[in-house]
Simulated scan of single mutants.
Amino acid sequence: MQIPQIRLQSTPMKIGLDIEQPVQQIEQKAAVQSIEQPQAILEIHTNRGKLTIDQTKAREEMDLKSLSKRVEEFAQQGYQDWLAGMARRSQQGTELRHIERGGSPLADQAKQNSKGAEKQFNLGWLPSYFSVKLDYEPAQVEIKATAQKPIIDAQIYRPEHTYTPGSVNLDILQKNTLDIDFINLYPEETGE
């Protein structure tokens, strides 16, 4: 016995895609930059330091006196010696005026007048401590600095952008089909 059958045969649809990719181009030129830095303005004013060394006292102690100091000392000493000489002569005159009182005033005066002053010896070439006077005024430095701003020049460029959009083309390469067949739908009679 034959059973009726339905036969289905399908063919799927085949699609063809033609894809054109999009193209994007971006070009960015480098910026042109110029930087200039002017030098700072620097002004320096200096008042020089002053060192004063006064060694007058040390030189005097070493008996290396200036001419004016020597003249002043000699004048003072001369005046003192003149006063002492006047006093001595006045006293000796008074002694001679009273010669009748006895003694030997002439011999005593001769002996006194012939005797000089005692000599004094001292190390004259060594000055005392701190006899050299030092005075120092330090230097004064005024510094004035004026900064200069940098000069910046920048030239920028916009990016160059080119875009070509993509596309998709659809093609049907094979259509879908469905074939239906009926087999043994009407059984055949046999002569039995």
Rank of each mutant, 00 (worst) to 15 (best):
A107C: 10
Q91R: 11
S68L: 10
V132F: 05
G102I: 09
Q33K: 04
M13F: 09
A58M: 00
Q39R: 13
P4H: 02
I183P: 07
T46R: 11
E73I: 08
T11I: 04
L170T: 00
I143Y: 08
G49T: 02
L178Q: 01
L8T: 06
Q109D: 08
V32N: 15
I143T: 06
K144L: 09
K115N: 15
I99C: 07
K50D: 13
G191K: 15
S114M: 11
K119D: 08
H98I: 07
Y129A: 15
L185T: 07
A154C: 08
V132Y: 02
G78V: 04
L83Q: 07
R101C: 13
I143V: 07
E43Y: 14
H161N: 07
V168N: 01
V32R: 10
R59C: 00
I19R: 03
P105V: 00
I183G: 06
Y79K: 09
G124N: 12
S131P: 03
P187S: 14
N113K: 06
Q33R: 05
E95T: 00
Q155C: 07
G85Q: 04
D171I: 10
E60P: 03
A139Y: 01
A75F: 09
V132Q: 01
G116N: 13
Q25Y: 12
D181R: 12
Q109Y: 00
I53Q: 01
L64F: 05
R89A: 12
L123M: 13
Q9A: 13
S10N: 04
E73F: 08
V23T: 14
P22Y: 03
E160V: 08
P4R: 02
F121Y: 15
K14R: 10
T162Q: 00
Y186D: 15
K111F: 15
Q120A: 15
Q9E: 13
L126V: 05
G116C: 14
I99D: 01
R97Q: 12
S128E: 07
